[in-house]
């Protein structure tokens, strides 16, 4: 009997100690390292970068030069156009093949899925080599075109090479998203449309595409943002100042034009962030995980 009384006495009864408040302190303790690392090594440097962009001779107008300076503006436009084209192409490929791989069951299907998603997380530089292998001076496309037409086709070192490389790079991640969305499509919706007389193309237009739309918007936005900032492929293919990241790199390393490099980086960052934020407001969550 005495022991029970002792236990009861030791039970926490002090009204001041809210267990939830104590837990909050512990939780704060757990998240602090992440906050410190992130603030010190990202928030602070980025804030400084934004300030640096306005620190050159032109001051705040350095930011405007991105639009007014012909070389910067055309590079920005080219990067936008390239990324847009890459996004549309990749989405089309991913819808056709992704739907096929989800809907059909045949021998070798899982091997094909593995093949299509294998280059996920290949770095851009390696993609550059892949493009050289396809369209470089000793590339397979050149060999084939010599055999067929007697003319050697080399596309690795211009915008076509970048386009091919970025599509290569984007296919695995977009197809994964599209396949995940296609698996969740409600088959009964398609059956309902068919029972109402819709032909297969109508079912595709009225049921499947609307069903995939959030996935298409989110993976398209990620694809676009990644293409905007992609650097390794352009670096390997030595694409000069054709795309914005290469321009930033040359301004910084060759011309030591720090203010311009900073301003261009900030603008590039803002564009990609805006695209992702916009897509998310349309398609809901899940848009942020680029990479």
């Amino acid at each position: 009997m005495t022991s029970i009384a002792a236990v009861v006495e030791r039970a926490p009864v002090s009204p001041g100690a809210d267990p939830r408040a104590r837990e909050n302190v512990l939780l704060l303790l757990l998240i602090t390292p992440a906050i410190v690392v992130f603030s010190a090594f990202w928030l602070l440097p980025i804030a400084r970068l934004v300030a640096l962009g306005a620190s050159g001779e032109a001051g705040i107008e350095t930011y405007l030069s991105v639009l007014t300076n012909g070389r910067y503006a055309s590079s920005l436009l080219q990067t936008l156009a390239l990324s847009g084209l890459v996004t549309l192409t990749t989405l089309a490929i991913a819808v056709i093949s992704g739907l096929f791989l989800v809907r059909q069951d045949f021998f070798g299907r899982s091997a094909l899925v593995a093949v299509m998603t294998l280059p996920l997380a290949f770095p851009g530089v390696v993609i550059g080599l892949m493009v050289i292998m396809l369209g470089g001076r000793q590339g397979i496309v050149g060999d084939v075109s010599v055999a067929l037409f007697g003319v050697k086709t080399v596309f690795a070192y211009n915008m076509v090479g970048l386009f091919v490389g970025y599509v290569y790079f984007s296919i695995p991640r977009v197809i994964l998203t599209v396949m995940a969305a296609a698996e969740k499509l409600d088959i009964q919706l398609e059956e309902a449309a068919r029972s109402l007389g819709a032909t297969p193309p109508m079912v595709f237009r009225d049921v499947i595409l609307p069903g995939l739309q959030p996935a298409l918007i989110s993976s398209g936005a990620i694809c676009f943002a990644t293409s905007m900032g992609a650097f390794g492929t352009a670096f390997t293919l030595n694409a000069g100042a054709s795309v914005l990241p290469m321009l930033i790199y040359t301004e910084f390393t060759l011309n030591a034009n720090i203010a311009v490099a900073a301003a261009l980086s900030v603008v590039l960052g803002l564009i990609t962030w805006a695209v992702l934020a916009l897509a998310r407001s349309f398609a809901g969550s899940g848009v942020s995980a680029a990479g």
Binding site: M228, F231, S265
Partner: peptide, 11 residues
């Protein structure tokens, strides 16, 4: 991850 790595590196 969302903004280009080059910008973070430069910063």
């Amino acid at each position: 991850v969302a903004i280009p790595g080059l910008a973070t590196a430069l910063a």
